[in-house]
Design a protein around this nucleic acid. Structure first.
Lengths: 121, 121
DNA sequence: TTTACATTTAAGCAATCACCTAATTAAGGA
DNA sequence: TCCTTAATTAGGTGATTGCTTAAATGTAAA
C-alpha cells in the first residue's frame, strides 16, 4: 500500500471520537468486541464497523478464539502518523528560525531596510 | 470548542492527501492561495474548500492583503494531535511492559503455571 | 471607469460515512 | 439436537465529502 493511503487511513480512523475512545481503551489492554461495545450507546453493528475502520488502518488486530475475537492495539501506524506531523512541525520551526534571523539582521541594518518576502504569521 | 471536536477536525483535515501536501508546502513558508493551487490539478474552488477545512482545524491562518490572501501554517493543533497519539502509545507500552514482567515471573515459576488473562498480540 | 485578476460563494452530483434494523454465521452448553 | 451467545453481513437512510461549473466579490491597473 502507498504510504499516502496508509496515512490517510490512519488519520481518517482517528478523526472519529468513538474510534479514539476504542483505541484508548485497547491501549490499556486487549479486549473482546463485547467489552468494547458495552461502553457505547450504539448498536453492535455500528461498533463492528468502527472496528473494521481501525483494523483497515492497521491500528488494531483481531485474534479469533472460539466465538470471541480478542482485539489488540497496534502502535506502528501511530508512529508513522506521528513522524509525519513531527516532520511538518520541524520544517516550520526551521523556517521560523531562519525568519527570525533575517528580521534580526534587518534590525541591525535599520537605516537601509529591504523588503522581506514573507511576514511572520 | 471541545477538545474532542478539535482533535476530530485536525485528524479529519490530515486524512486527505491534498491537504497534507498543502500543509507540507506551507511548512516551508507562507504562500498565496494561487501559489498553493497552481501545484494541483484541480479547480480553484476545490483548493479553496481544502483550505477552509485546514483553517477550521486551526492548521492554517489567512491574512488578507489586497486581493491576495497569505496562508500560514499553525503548529499548535499538530501538538495536540501528536500528544494524543503519544499518550496512547505510552499507555500501550506500559501495558506491554507489565505483560512481559508477568510472563517473566511465569517462566520462573514454570512448574506451577497459571492462566494469563491476556495474550501478547 | 472599465477591465483584468485573485479568490470565494452557490449549486449540484456521485461517493462515502455513521448510523439503524433484520437476518445470518458460528461456536458452546443444556 | 436445540438454544443461547458473540459477532458479522446485508440493506437502507440522511448527512457529509470532494469535486465540478457558473456566478459573485473585491482590488489593482489601464
Amino acid at each position: 500500500m502507498r504510504a499516502d493511503d496508509r496515512l490517510s487511513r490512519v488519520f481518517a480512523a482517528l478523526a472519529d471520537q468513538t474510534r479514539r475512545e476504542i483505541l484508548a481503551q485497547l491501549s490499556q489492554g486487549s479486549a473482546s468486541v463485547g467489552e468494547v461495545a458495552s461502553r457505547f450507546d450504539m448498536s453492535a453493528p455500528a461498533v463492528s464497523q468502527h472496528l473494521k475502520v481501525l483494523e483497515r488502518a492497521g491500528l488494531i488486530t483481531r485474534t479469533v478464539q472460539a466465538q470471541w475475537r480478542t482485539l489488540s492495539m497496534r502502535a506502528e501506524p501511530l508512529d508513522e502518523a506521528s513522524a509525519w506531523m513531527e516532520e511538518q512541525r520541524r520544517t516550520w520551526n526551521l523556517h521560523l528560525d531562519a525568519l527570525d534571523e533575517h528580521l534580526g539582521s534587518m534590525k541591525k541594518d535599520i537605516s537601509n531596510p529591504q523588503d522581506s518576502k514573507e511576514t511572520k504569521p
